[in-house]
Structures are given as C-alpha cells and as structure tokens.
C-alpha cells in the first residue's frame, strides 16, 4: 500500500528512573517538583514511533506525532527524539500528567488529529502506546479512535505486516506470553503498541536538523488545551505504605543459601 500515513499519539512522562513523590494541593494531585524532573517520550509511545517510522519508510506516507504536554517539557523531549526519525509535530500546551483524565486527553488528541492539513483518515493508521508510564490506564487511544470513527482497534501490538492490497496482519499480546494474530482489511485502524521488536534508532544529526525546522514553529504555535474535568476528584494520592523488614543473610555458604531457597520454593 502506498502513501499510508501514520499518526502517533505520544505523551511525555517523567524519566521512569527518577524518584517520584506525589503531592496534592486541594483536589489537584501532581508530582512534587514535576517541572524539575527530566522527561522522556512515554516508553510505549516511543516504540510506536519507531515502528511507525519503519512503516512509512515502506509505504512512502507521512509520519505525524501528536502530543499534549507542558510546552517547555515537550521542547526538552524533542531534543532527545527528533534526531531519531523524521516526523511532523502537532502539539498542544497543557499540564498533562499521570493524573489527567484520559477522556479529556483523548478529546484533545482527536482535535489535534483533525487539525492535520489534508490528512485522509481512510489512508491513515493511528498509533500510540497501549498504556502509558504515567496513567497506565490503556484507555486513551480507544477513545481517540471512537471520536474519529475508527473501530478497528488493536492493543498490546508487537508487530504489523502490510500486504500489497492494503490489508495488514497484527500481532497483539495476550495472556500467557502469547500473541493474537488478526488480519484487518485496511486503514483506518488504531494500534496501541507494546514494545514491538525494533531497537531504538541511532541519533542522526541530519534528521534532527530537518525535523527541528518544523518542530520549533509547531511548538511555538502550540495552543493551550483544556484538561479540566470537574467530575473527577482525587481524594488522596500516596506512596505505598508497606515497607518490608528485609532480613540480610550473609556469611553463610552458597550451599546453605541454596538449601534455604529450595525449602522456601517448596513451602506453601
């Protein structure tokens, strides 16, 4: 299939290896010093992006990234991904985070997709991560699809293979480390990606140079998005309370440790 476009809905999240402390001001939860934390592209959305880039390379279509986040953080994340694959950014400026409601995010994402000049949805796949490292709900993309009238949807996708007639094969993760194999007659469709099989592309300065010429203006034009949802109330946010009393076992032989582990494994 030629000129198949891919729109990747990609959020940004605090670097998952940072220490995260919740704070709550009134009924608004958030992360302590959230704007100080380095952010990254949501890891699953990252996989979606790299898979999308490979796909449009094959079809000759165009790759769009649609994202909602604080402008300064989006700008920071773009510095780390825009050298990887060529794309066009469509962004909205909002304090989107793990406590934002996915419905509000979906509505805004769908609006941004609708704003893409000349995009023919019937020749487009909507990609994203199947969950996020922030909200981890796995609900946003379905709603983006519903708003845009796309009812062929796949979640936990690890592989897509295009056929010449525009149909494609999808492997979705299911329980037990297995994959569900489906075939769809063609675009449009929604694919929420798990990790796929592609490694992260290397940084290519040439791609970065070209991307940034359109990304910076897109960021400058990013309009504020309203994510307020008065019907949702967080009553509390907290770190796990349970702290285990860790027993340190040292200065005993490997044999003794092995036996202890065996006894533990066998115990009920």
């Amino acid at each position: 299939m030629t000129n198949l476009n891919v729109v990747v809905c990609a959020g940004i999240v605090p670097d998952p290896l940072q220490t995260l402390d919740p704070v709550q001001t009134g009924e608004k939860p958030g992360l302590r010093n959230e704007m100080m934390l380095p952010h990254v592209l949501d890891p699953w959305a990252g996989h979606a992006l790299y898979e999308a880039a490979e796909l449009v390379k094959e079809t000759g279509g165009k790759l769009y990234v649609v994202s909602i986040g604080p402008k300064a953080k989006l700008q920071q994340v773009m510095m780390t991904i825009a050298q990887k694959v060529p794309f066009q950014l469509i962004a909205a400026d909002a304090a989107a985070g793990g406590f934002s409601d996915s419905k509000q995010i979906a509505v805004q994402l769908a609006e941004l997709v609708k704003q893409i000049d000349g995009l023919d949805l019937s020749n487009t796949l909507l990609f994203g991560g199947w969950e996020s490292a922030s909200r981890g709900a796995g609900t946003t993309l379905q709603m983006v699809g519903e708003i845009l009238g796309v009812t062929d949807q796949f979640q936990g996708v690890d592989k897509i293979s295009l056929n010449d007639d525009g149909s494609f094969k999808v492997l979705e993760r299911i329980e037990g480390g297995k994959h569900l194999h489906s075939s769809c007659s063609g675009a449009p469709a929604v694919l929420g990606w798990a990790t796929g099989y592609l490694p992260e592309p290397p940084n290519n300065p040439q791609i970065g140079m070209t991307n940034m010429r359109t990304i910076m203006p897109a960021l400058q034009q990013a309009k504020p998005a309203d994510l307020e949802n008065p019907e949702l109330t967080f009553t509390a946010v907290e770190l796990p309370k349970q702290k285990r009393d860790t027993k340190i076992v040292k200065d005993i032989s490997a044999d003794e440790i092995a036996q202890e582990i065996i006894d533990w494994i066998k115990s009920k």
Binding site: Q75, M79, Q83, N203, G208, M212, M216, P217
Partner: peptide, 10 residues
C-alpha cells in the same frame, strides 16, 4: 531553543 535560531542536541 525557544528563539528557534539554534539547535541543541543532547
């Protein structure tokens, strides 16, 4: 970066 005049790549 906001100036849009230079590129910065970490």
């Amino acid at each position: 970066l906001g100036s849009g005049m230079v590129q910065l790549w970490p």
